[in-house]
Amino acid sequence: MSDGLNYKFLFDTFFVALSGVPITLIVTFVALLIAVPAGFSLALTRINRIPVLNRFAQVYVSFVRGTPIIIQIFIVYSSVPILLTSIFTKYNINMNVYDVNPIWYAFIVFSFNTTAVLIEVFRSALSTVDKGQLEASHSVGLTNSQAYRRIIIPQALVVAMPNLCTATVNLIKATSLGYAMSLQEITLKAKVAANVGYNYVEAYIDIFLVYLILCSLVEFAFKLYEKRLSKYKPANA
């Protein structure tokens, strides 16, 4: 074991870790693709206090907030194969569930977790839009969907963007826990490379740098989009 850092390994493994970025981005994109509409819909049920759905959303958010995401990963990664095995056995389906790519479990876990986060993001953002604007939209002949698409959502997005950015960055960082499902993302690739010579310090530095660069780029993209949305910001804001 060397006394200092192995700079050659540090350099080489940086690109190994970088090769896990596509998987990280795919998981992030799919999770957001599912979580954004689901979170927005459930936020509306909370805003409008729809009896059963409002209560469901409250319990759902409390459950996700109250349990570590690593526990959610272990539950899904262990329980889903058992459930699928029992279903396949019952209906004589010849398929080994343990051959399923772990990325599918990642889609389930991170979509489930991010939806709960976005429910609260959208709920708080929608609450800032004056209810009178919806009534004014109806008075000029706009339907509910037209009013939300043209007036309510753009204004709510202005308020929601900082929290959406935070939720996305946190989601990207949370995908590092995908190693627990053998997901070939940034962390697992760097750690596997480190196993040969026990260069874990260098591997963790590389992981740190890759996530720092990736999250900084995402934050920059959100800031650009936030500037585009500034035209919807109320004059007195």
Rank of each mutant, 00 (worst) to 15 (best):
R123V: 00
R123A: 01
R123W: 04
R123S: 02
R123E: 01
S124L: 04
S124V: 04
S124I: 02
S124R: 10
S124T: 01
S127F: 03
T128L: 11
T128R: 02
V129F: 05
V129R: 02
D130K: 09
D130L: 08
D130A: 00
K131I: 01
G132R: 00
G132P: 08
G132V: 00
G132L: 02
Q133H: 03
L134Q: 10
L134S: 13
L134F: 08
E135C: 00
A136W: 04
A136M: 07
S137T: 04
H138T: 04
H138C: 04
S139E: 00
S139H: 00
V140C: 09
V140I: 14
G141Y: 01
G141Q: 09
G141M: 00
L142S: 05
L142M: 15
T143V: 01
T143L: 03
N144M: 11
N144E: 14
N144K: 15
N144C: 04
S145K: 10
S145C: 05
A147Y: 00
A147K: 03
A147Q: 00
A147H: 05
Y148G: 05
Y148S: 04
Y148H: 12
R149E: 07
R149W: 09
R149F: 11
R150A: 10
R150T: 11
R150Q: 13
R150N: 11
R150G: 04
I152P: 12
I152W: 03
I152T: 00
I153S: 07
I153A: 05
I153G: 06
I153Y: 06
I153M: 10
I153N: 02
P154G: 07
P154S: 08
Q155D: 03
Q155S: 10
A156S: 07
L157R: 09
L157S: 02
V158Q: 12
V158Y: 12
V158E: 11
V158S: 06
V159N: 14
A160N: 05
A160M: 08
A160P: 06
M161H: 07
P162C: 00
P162S: 06
P162K: 03
N163Q: 15
L164M: 13
L164Q: 10
C165Q: 14
T166L: 14
T166H: 08
T166E: 12
A167T: 03
A167H: 12
A167E: 08
T168L: 05
V169Y: 04
V169T: 13
N170Y: 05
N170C: 03
N170G: 15
N170D: 15
I172P: 05
K173L: 15
K173S: 14
K173G: 13
A174H: 08
G178M: 11
Y179G: 07
Y179L: 15
A180N: 08
M181A: 13
M181G: 11
M181C: 11
S182P: 07
L183D: 05
L183P: 12
Q184K: 13
Q184F: 07
E185D: 03
I186M: 12
I186T: 11
I186F: 13
T187G: 07
T187V: 15
T187A: 14
L188V: 07
L188P: 13
K189Q: 15
A190K: 03
K191C: 05
V192L: 15
V192E: 14
